[in-house]
Design a protein around this nucleic acid. Structure first.
Length: 203
DNA sequence: CCCTGATTCGC
DNA sequence: GCGAATCAGG
């Protein structure tokens, strides 16, 4: 595979979107993440701001930490993220604080959810309103679940509980987790719902 | 061990 | 220019 115009475009796009090199490589096909990274560098669009969790700051590649405006990730109909980067002299500056209006700090306390003590396990979706497909998927994979015990769970095993903890017939899914998630793909599907139709929460 | 990106260097 | 191998952090 070669870096055709289109492929490069897709690369740029995905990279701009914050996709990881491996994801991009997978999407493109025929290339490894190394190839993608290499290309990214050659294109001169390395350091992405934010997003990149697993970066290598120690590499000291850029002694000049140029402050670049972080592109807000928005679903814009306009796919024209002109990478116009007026290279500014890296000057250590302080961010102008918003005077009056209260600004949302980047550190957003996303989790306000309270989990009942003594029961760190996610609630079993009983007759919930979950897409039938997702549920079907679940019962599907539960057949080939590894049925692990609590002690057998690792970072990469799906921690979705199955059965009644009070009975003998209880185990954890144990399939490979989706990266960053505590569950396998199927269970992630039912665990993280996009917020189904909420009844009017009026008392 | 899984992932991430960065860099090197032979091709 | 390319990308596998390697490096280095999380």
């Amino acid at each position: 595979m070669s870096w055709t115009d289109e492929r490069v475009e897709l690369l740029k796009k995905m990279w701009a979107e914050g996709q990881s090199a491996s994801q991009i490589a997978k999407e493109l096909g025929g290339v490894t993440r190394n190839a993608v990274i290499g290309k990214v560098h050659r294109l001169g669009l390395s350091n992405r701001t934010g997003g990149a969790a697993g970066s290598a700051p120690a590499a000291a590649a850029a002694p000049a930490p140029a402050k670049e405006p972080k592109p807000a990730k928005e679903a814009k109909p306009k796919p024209a993220p002109k990478p116009v980067e007026p290279e500014q002299p890296a000057v250590a500056e302080e961010e102008p604080e918003a005077p009056v209006a209260e600004t949302r700090p980047a550190t957003t306390p996303a989790r306000k959810q309270i989990i009942p003590a003594g029961q760190p396990l996610p609630p079993q979706p009983s007759a919930n309103e979950i897409s039938p497909e997702a549920l079907a998927k679940v019962s599907e994979i539960e057949k080939k679940a590894k049925k692990l015990t609590l002690m057998e769970l690792t970072e990469r095993t799906c921690k979705w509980p199955v059965g009644d903890p009070a009975t003998d017939d209880f185990w954890f899914c144990g399939l490979p987790v989706q990266q960053g998630k505590p569950y396998c793909e199927a269970h992630v599907g039912v665990a993280f719902q996009p917020m189904s139709s909420r009844r009017d929460r009026r008392r």
